[in-house]
Nucleic acid binder design. Structure first.
Lengths: 253, 253
DNA sequence: CGAGCAATTGAACGCTGTCAACCCGAGTGG
DNA sequence: CCACTCGGGTTGACAGCGTTCAATTGCTCG
């Protein structure tokens, strides 16, 4: 079920797949490994409840987590998806305003928050890395705010499809020219909660894109992106424009 | 025009009003002051253009800045407002994806980015503070994503009004029990761009809330919050629920 | 076989974006 | 003093996208 399954099972985060460790010096890595703990979660399990004090921070090794907020009436909004390589958790004692749950089966590399923070003084590079991660997440959040506020459901859908494709490319370079097939690792309900709409609208958007030959529905969770240029035009937030240019240069070259 | 005007004019950021410096040790503060530079901006001036490399970081001393993104078709979305005390700028060399402009006249305490970063090794507490600021901003962004995705325009409006009230309270404690009057420091156009809607819808929402006696319009930029409980019920994202409870306990006590 | 869930499709209502007109105060120049 | 312009704010009419309610299908699981 993993959208981005790793080639070999991991036993710790020293793998090159682990973006947190791979950019650190040897001693820092060793210390991190010492306090790390690999944990497995089933789909639907709660890693952190809303309004709970963050006691762990960590990194996704495989699977997908959703960061979500719940409204009074039970509606849920997903404010971010955590894919393999992404860091999660706050490095401060303040309580969280988001819940983190496993959207699929997931393997995480976890650290006790306080032990993790204690390493900051000894290895400032870890804090640098953390600051970079949070900054990146903020950028992504602001990008998504733009989408939620200004784009139609179909446009958001197209943007999400292109995002999934971009995510899957780095691990899939040999198939760069092959048929671009993406796997959506979450159910329609989560998709709706992420795109800020309803299950029904998600279905209609998907079917509409299929009717317009932008995509081909292989099964409810796998789609072939038939007309990537068309999708990019649909999406064309400035971020996606860059993708479009890259796509054209690949075609031309 | 400042929503939160400071009691006395500031000449540097050593003031207690400066949240960045006030939490730091004396030597760190001294160093920061040494490299700081106070700058004034008129309403509408650009502090940082989109896709430009961040060369300064700093803090808002007075006035309001808007962080905004521009779409291909010229529409603009505000992804965050920076109020007095807020930090701005990325501490990395990567180019920005947002533009920062002065929404009102503003006074900023600026640092050259590289000089600022250079202090990290000597004073890790500055980096701590920066990490805290970015984390806080991320929280705010996720809160706002929830609003943009799930609430109606009127609900977002109500949430924004309550947010402004909360912001103004700390500096206005003696008037806690007085008539809650808020001052909206930005024009309707910015309001619409922040709430993810249009100028027309903003007007309609405001007039509707006035008709329902939730607010009273003093002038286009000042409102009396007549029925705070009603506004909180309208807004009731979980964050506002806390406000509601606090309000009730004040009333009961 | 029935229960339950995910996904899909249909129909109707309503919020909100669009287009348009209007008000109003500030500035400007005759 | 008036006419004019300009920008910000407000209001109205209307169409369209998307939510809501409802029903159906297909699948898994006990």
């Amino acid at each position: 079920m993993d959208a981005v399954s790793l080639p070999t099972p991991l036993t710790n985060c020293l793998s090159t797949q682990c973006s947190l460790c791979s950019t650190l010096s040897e001693p820092a890595r060793a210390e991190l490994t010492r306090i790390s703990r690999i944990r497995n979660f089933d789909a639907g399990e709660t890693i952190l409840a809303e309004a709970e004090t963050f006691e762990i921070v960590g990194q996704v090794l495989s699977g997908v987590l959703r960061m979500q907020k719940t409204l009074f009436d039970g509606r849920q909004q997903i404010v971010g998806l955590l894919m393999p390589g992404d860091l999660f958790g706050h490095v401060f004692a303040r309580t969280s305003h988001v819940a983190i749950e496993a959207a699929t089966e997931a393997v995480l590399c976890c650290y006790h928050r306080q032990s993790f923070e204690a390493l900051f003084t000894q290895f400032p590079e870890i804090e640098h890395r953390m600051l970079a991660a949070v900054t990146e997440e903020l950028d992504a959040a602001q990008d998504w705010m733009l989408l939620l506020a200004t784009q139609t459901v179909t446009q958001r859908m197209a943007t999400f499809f292109l995002y999934l494709r971009r995510k899957s490319l780095p691990l899939d370079v040999p198939h760069l020219m092959g048929p671009p097939v993406i796997e959506v690792p979450i159910c329609r309900k989560d998709l709706a909660a992420y795109l800020g709409t309803t299950v029904e609208s998600v279905c209609r958007s998907i079917q509409q894109m299929a009717r317009e030959h932008l995509i081909r529905i292989l099964d409810p969770h796998r789609f072939e992106l038939v007309d990537i240029e068309g999708l990019a035009l649909l999406s064309h937030a400035d971020e996606e424009f860059r993708d479009l240019k890259a796509y054209r240069s690949i075609r031309a070259g």
